[in-house]
């Protein structure tokens, strides 16, 4: 309950940032909310079931692609919803075969799938003679930021609801032992598929919003594997055992990126990689686990 109130205060504070009159801060909040939404969505599948996806960029990219194709012909809210739906439908379509693959093979399969879709879209675009699409009329940054903040809130509430529901209990049983879960009545296949779809929907809308922010679509960027990598790193750094983990991870690394990305992008990636390795080896429960330890719980 305390967490919820704190969260709502943060959201309200962030929503008021445009009143500062500095678009830079509005942009930072946009980035923060974006990564929180993505990392939290990822956790709906990967933190709960242990199926680590290294391909969430594909949902983001699909959202962006659908959004750019529809922009101009329908209102912008509709393009976002369509992006989210497309990502969800894509997850539902590939979910059954993909989720039969386990452990490290699932990790590389998701990566490979994301890359496959990226190359297919690049091929389609170049066959259409397009080398990137511009969008000329976009909503003001405040509106985009508020939408992103809404998505982040939705993702956090969704992740919280999943973890505290029957659905979430079933997913953690799947993470621990799939066969045993099935034996005590958990419909493993259906639950995994639902989690997969749930974790794809919000990234679809996020991709659309991010596209409107940059007002430029290029498939190589929209499906950039660095997006997937950043999501995983944020979630693992923050800690996958709690809902606040991905939030903490996203905040920490977004701020780091604001510091380094624009001037020293390669150094930023090196720091990101080292941070990930360091956390896996030395802080497997993430920042969130550290906080608990310091607070003396567990």
């Amino acid at each position: 309950m305390k967490g919820l109130i704190l969260g709502l205060v943060c959201v309200a504070g962030a929503a008021a940032v445009p009143m500062l009159g500095n678009p830079y801060y509005t942009g930072v909040i946009f980035q923060l909310a974006m990564w929180i939404a993505l990392a939290q969505s990822w956790s709906m599948l990967s933190a709960t079931t242990g199926y680590l996806s290294l391909g969430h960029a594909v949902f983001y990219g699909i959202g962006a692609y659908v959004c750019v194709l529809l922009t101009g012909s329908v209102p912008f809210a509709v393009t976002l919803i369509a992006g989210a739906l497309a990502a969800g439908i894509f997850a539902a379509a590939i979910g059954l075969p993909v989720l039969r693959v386990r452990g490290p093979y699932f990790v590389i399969l998701t990566y490979g799938l994301s890359e496959l879709v990226r190359h297919v879209v690049m091929r389609i675009e170049s066959a259409l003679g397009s080398f990137g699409r511009m969008i000329f009329i976009v909503p003001p940054i405040e509106v985009l930021m508020w939408c992103m903040l809404g998505l982040a809130t939705l993702a956090c509430l969704g992740a919280w609801a999943i973890r505290h529901s029957t659905f979430g209990a079933g997913l953690s049983a799947i993470r621990e032992d799939e066969v045993a879960a099935e034996t005590v009545g958990v419909p493993v296949t259906r639950l995994k598929l639902l989690a997969f779809v749930a974790s794809a929907i919000i990234p679809g809308a996020v991709g659309g919003l991010a596209l409107l922010r940059t007002s430029y679509f290029e498939p190589g960027q929209a499906f950039d594997p660095v997006i997937s990598f950043t999501i995983v790193t944020m979630a693992l750094v923050g800690g996958t055992e709690t809902v606040r983990g991905p939030i903490l991870g996203a905040v920490a690394l977004t701020l780091l990126s604001e510091l380094l990305w624009s001037n020293l992008p390669q150094l930023y990636m090196v720091v990101l990689g080292s941070t990930l390795i360091g956390f896996i080896l030395f802080v497997p429960r993430g920042v969130s686990g550290l906080v608990d330890q310091i607070a003396g719980r567990r």
Binding site: S172, A173, D177, A180
Partner: peptide, 10 residues
């Protein structure tokens, strides 16, 4: 199961 399969982390 003969070889027990607890949800070890729960």
């Amino acid at each position: 199961f003969q070889i027990v399969r607890p949800f070890g982390g729960l």
